[in-house]
């Protein structure tokens, strides 16, 4: 069955784009995003899929992004899977993730070879020190921005601290931390009705 029949949101997508999205076009578009998205993929994805190609509505994009963030996996690759799936099924998902990964993967392959040969040179160690320090700032800014957006209650900050302490201080594995603290947090945010029933 066609997903578009079951799903009015999709119907809108079909109207948004003129004609179908072929596998080749899908691959090329994601390859382009993969090759040009310096400094974070999400704005480039939105620019391409929503503004330029009009394959997705803004609402669909935001919904897919929130789903990508909740699931394990990188936002960029999860988005490629979801968009590819929506526009051309399983094959669409495969070519989208291939396209978005290929340029950066090849580049890092080459960088890895050069790093092994030249990584010890004085200018390289200097540059690497600067780059590494900047990356710490970059990750911290992501943490701050995500916190502003999605931490709602005071207890959410407790869950953040618990997670950090478990991993960095108690040296628990990320998996165990994810399961234990995750379960606590999900139960804390359990559906309201269930909460009221539990109280009764």
């Amino acid at each position: 069955m066609s997903d578009a029949e079951a799903n009015p949101e999709l119907q809108k997508t079909v109207e948004l784009r003129a004609g179908g999205v072929s596998i080749a076009r899908l691959f090329l578009e994601f390859l382009t995003i993969g090759a040009t998205s310096f400094g974070g993929v999400v704005p480039y994805l939105r620019g391409s899929l929503v503004s330029k190609q009009r394959w997705l509505s803004d609402k669909e994009f935001v919904e897919m992004l929130s789903m990508s963030q909740s699931l394990p996996g990188l936002n960029a690759t999860n988005m490629a899977i979801l968009v590819g799936q929506k526009l051309n099924g399983a094959l669409g998902a495969v070519v989208a993730i291939l396209g978005i990964c290929l340029p950066g993967g090849l580049l890092m392959f080459i960088v890895g070879i050069f790093y092994r040969i030249h990584g010890d040179h004085a200018w390289a160690t200097g540059a690497l020190k600067g780059v590494a320090a900047a990356s710490v700032g970059l990750v911290l800014s992501t943490v701050v921005q995500l916190s502003k957006k999605s931490l709602e209650e005071r207890l959410d900050y407790v869950f953040v601290v618990l997670t950090v302490v478990a991993v960095n201080r108690l040296h628990q594995s990320v998996l165990i931390t994810l399961v234990v603290v995750g379960l606590m947090a999900v139960l804390w945010h359990r559906p309201r009705q269930a909460k009221e029933e539990a109280v009764r």
Binding site: A132, V139, L151, D156, V167, V181, A185, R192
Partner: peptide, 30 residues
């Protein structure tokens, strides 16, 4: 209803994991 609960519950944990990763990175960078 649990879909929202899972999303809201995982948000602080994923932020904590990012921060923990950041501290690990910082040990080798700062």
């Amino acid at each position: 209803p649990w879909r929202t609960s899972i999303q809201r519950g995982l948000a602080p944990v994923s932020i904590g994991l990012l921060l923990a990763g950041c501290f690990t990175l910082a040990k080798g960078a700062i």
